[in-house]
Structures are given as structure tokens and as C-alpha cells.
């Protein structure tokens, strides 16, 4: 009894002795490394915040109603507005979505549910999809120029042309995110459907796709929020400032980033201020879309 208890206390004290000492997580090297990590994070966030704040302060005097309602003006430079650009961007986004969503979903469904991934041509498509997502946007602009040429349009700076360029641009992103969403639907769900006598097509249409909708929506919105900030492919197409609202797919159009780009390269102070204000509007649109994407993901995305 007593032998046992002394043995136990001896064991106890030796354990305590082993536990003592400085935490090795708190030695100078670790702390230094942690500080470096913090600095990286801080640097990115602070620079971004500073930029936004600076732009917001510069543009503050022009964050008024006329910014949204007026067309660009050469005479009343302090009342110049971005009505054409904002409306144009909305038109472009809607048309881009209408073009890109069905194409993207179709391609993704084919690759995930129907294509035999062992064949060389499907593997080629696979590899190229990843690469396409990294192709500079200006290339897509050139591609759209070629397509519009083939379609017989001489003036290409119209809603359809811009939307084709942007749809091509976001298509890889839409396909990749849709595939991920489809892949996240468990195999057991498909098996359950097929075991009931459903066809692969019915299984995809009634089970897989509806379950993948939140993921598809999130991916598409993130793609569109990239497209809305693009100027390069649209400039290649010849989109330029207009002083009218687009009313159809074949109407001339200008996008907000192009308008900002053109105004900010002018020397007039009033234009600089207006461009800063428009940048804030564009940022708000992008942030709004991203917020919507995050909302959809958190609210509807299913964890299986």
C-alpha cells in the first residue's frame, strides 16, 4: 500500500518535471514567423483599404444623383455622369449571363455525367479548361471580334459583341464551378435514382442539377463579377462612349470600366473626381455581387 503510493507520487513528480519548461510555440523564431505572417496580411488589407479610402475621398463630391442619371458631358464637366456606362454594364451582364450559363452548365454536365473521362479527347478538353481560365481577357476580346466578323457585323461595339467576349471570358469559370457543384452531389443520390428506374438524363435533370444550383449560382455570379470589371476585351471590340441607353442586343453600348478608363485619362480635374466616384460605384457593384454569391453559398449550399 505505502509502497504503491510512494511509487505513484514519484511518478507524479517526474511527470510534473517533464511538463515544465517554456512553450516551444513561443520561442523567438516562432514569434518572428508569426509576425511576418501578420505583416503580410496587414499589408494586403491596409493597402487595399487605403486605395479605396483615397478614391472614395477623391470622388466624394460627385457621389450624387447626377452621377447615375446624366450622360457624359463635355460642356458641363462638373455634372458629367455615368448613366450610359452603368446601364451598359447591366445590359452586358444580363446578356453575358444568358449566354454563359446554359453553355457552361451544358458543358459541365456533359463532362461530369456523360463523357468518358478515359478517352484522349475528353482528357484534352479537361486540361485545356484549366488553362482557358488563365488566358488573358484580351484574347477573348479578339476571339469575339472574329466571331462578330463571321456574323457579319461591321460595328462590333454593341451589346451582343461585348456579351460574347465576356461570356467567353467567364465560360471556363462557370464550367469549372458547375463541375465542382455537380461533383459535390454524392454518388449515392444518383445510384438511388437510377435504382428506381430513372434514366441518367432524368437523374441529372431532377436530382443532380437541382442540388447543384446553389454552387452553380455562386460560381456564375463570381464569374460575372470578374466580367463587370473588365475593360480590355471590350476596348478591342471598339466599345466607346455613347450618349444613349441601349434598348436591344444590337445597340451601341459602353461599359462602366471603359468610361472610367477614358475619363481618368483626361486632364480635367472634374473628370478625375467623377471617375473616382464611378470607381466607387463599380466597386460597390462588384462587392454586391460577391456578397450575393457568398449569401447564396451559405444559405443554400448543402453539406451532405
Amino acid at each position: 500500500m505505502s509502497v504503491a503510493s510512494t511509487a505513484a507520487s514519484a511518478a507524479q513528480s517526474s511527470v510534473q518535471a517533464n511538463l515544465k519548461g517554456r512553450s516551444r510555440d513561443k520561442n523567438p523564431k516562432s514569434i518572428l514567423f508569426l509576425a511576418a505572417l501578420w505583416f503580410s496580411l496587414f499589408f494586403g488589407v491596409v493597402v487595399l483599404l487605403a486605395l479605396i479610402l483615397d478614391t472614395a475621398i477623391a470622388g466624394a463630391p460627385r457621389l450624387d444623383g447626377e452621377l447615375f442619371t446624366n450622360y457624359e458631358s463635355r460642356i458641363n464637366r462638373d455634372e458629367t455622369g455615368f448613366r450610359a456606362g452603368i446601364l451598359g454594364s447591366v445590359w452586358l451582364m444580363v446578356t453575358t449571363a444568358i449566354l454563359a450559363i446554359p453553355l457552361g452548365i451544358g458543358a459541365a454536365v456533359h463532362l461530369e455525367e456523360f463523357a468518358d473521362s478515359r478517352t484522349w479527347y475528353n482528357r484534352l478538353v479537361e486540361v485545356n479548361l484549366q488553362n482557358l481560365a488563365a488566358v488573358p481577357s484580351i484574347i477573348y476580346g479578339m476571339l469575339a471580334v472574329a466571331i462578330m466578323g463571321l456574323l457579319g457585323f461591321t460595328y462590333k461595339g454593341i451589346v451582343l459583341g461585348g456579351a460574347i467576349a465576356l461570356a467567353l471570358l467567364i465560360l471556363p469559370v462557370v464550367i469549372i464551378t458547375t463541375r465542382e457543384a455537380i461533383r459535390a452531389v454524392p454518388e449515392e443520390i444518383r445510384q438511388g435514382s437510377l435504382a428506381l428506374g430513372a434514366t441518367v438524363w432524368q437523374t441529372t435533370w431532377r436530382n443532380t442539377l437541382p442540388s447543384a444550383v446553389p454552387g452553380i449560382a455562386t460560381g456564375t455570379i463570381l464569374g460575372l463579377s470578374r466580367a463587370i470589371g473588365e475593360a480590355a476585351p471590350l476596348i478591342i471590340l471598339g466599345l466607346a462612349v455613347v450618349r444613349e441607353d441601349p434598348a436591344g442586343l444590337l445597340d451601341k453600348v459602353v461599359a462602366l470600366p471603359i468610361q472610367i478608363f477614358q475619363l481618368s485619362s483626361e486632364s480635367h480635374e472634374e473628370y478625375q473626381i467623377a471617375a473616382s466616384a464611378a470607381i466607387i460605384v463599380l466597386l460597390a457593384m462588384i462587392l454586391g455581387m460577391n456578397a450575393l454569391a457568398i449569401f447564396i453559398r451559405n444559405k443554400f449550399q448543402r453539406s451532405w
Partner: peptide
């Protein structure tokens, strides 16, 4: 065939 011969799986797999 599958409409005549049904199947129940190891893990319950109701549809969402």
C-alpha cells in the same frame, strides 16, 4: 429491369 427489381442501399440515401 430496375423498375422490376428495386434496390435499397447501405447508407440511407433519400433525395434532397
Amino acid at each position: 429491369v430496375r423498375t422490376h427489381i428495386g434496390m435499397v442501399f447501405q447508407k440511407p440515401n433519400p433525395f434532397p
